[in-house]
Amino acid sequence: MSLFVQQIFNGLKVGSVYALVALGYTMVYGIIRLINFAHGDFIMVGAYTLCYTIPLMVNAGMPAWMAVVLGIVVCVIVGVVVELLAYRPVRKKGTNMTALITAISMSLFLQNTAQSLFGSAPKPITTIFDLEPINIAGVSIAGETLVTILIGFAVMITLTVVVNKTKIGRSMRAVSQDRQAAILTGVNVNRTITLTFAIGAALAALAALMYCANYPAASPTMGGMLGLKAFVAAVLGGIGIIPGAMLGGILVGLVESLSKAYSAVLTGGIITSAFSDAVVFMILIFVLLIRPAGILGKNEREKV
């Protein structure tokens, strides 16, 4: 029982990181129908920024996690520059396919830039939260785990409020639902798209903080698998749908953590914990067979 509770918390922890990253994918997809493959690498950018800014913060006598503010700034700049210099010109001239290929090449570009700047060996990140484990129902849960879950949920609630209740959020929804009508009601479409990229990149920086609090290292390719799984989460929940990304992220986290703990026991050692990623992708395939648009997605018929 205590193992189960432990695994649920682990799942929620990893899941809230996935959820934040998935939100970045889904918001950009919702607004310009582009799968931003470079999004996972924004996390890597955030992690390297933390790597160098945490010591600065600590030396200045501030708490280490304050470094995330600089992380957000750097990620937002990278995200917006990628949108303005790479995606926007391609969107004007090319097709969805050219945009997708540009996204893949931006991902490779960021990874290789990081490798040439920082080398391919992982760089350690110093402690972000120095917390005591906390006892919940007789189970000892790491402080980082709880903080990660709390930040994740706080960010998700804030984002939901911003998207549904504010003028900026309304502009974003307007552009995503009908770009022509958005222009006619006075929404500055380009500015709204840039803003969406900025928000997505800021979420990636927060995800980097949460991820590095638990796995304290930065490497050039760290965004690859993390980004891929978050993308799975976004598709699982229904890409383009904000609550879908949150749900998908948490589900992927829980499945991954539970399959790591129990698959070997349940299958008599055939499926070991090393297969946990495979289990996640299997579930994606099954869900998409039953609900092609994702759990919360609506099956839209192509309009002719």
Binding site: R170, R173, A174, Q177, D178, Q180, A181, L184, T185, G186
Partner: peptide, 19 residues
């Protein structure tokens, strides 16, 4: 028409006064 399909009727009207 180009109304915003996933917004409520009231939100669509609010969008009209967006600027």
């Amino acid at each position: 028409r180009h109304i915003f399909p996933n917004m409520t009727v009231a939100e669509n009207l609010v969008m009209g006064a967006h600027m």
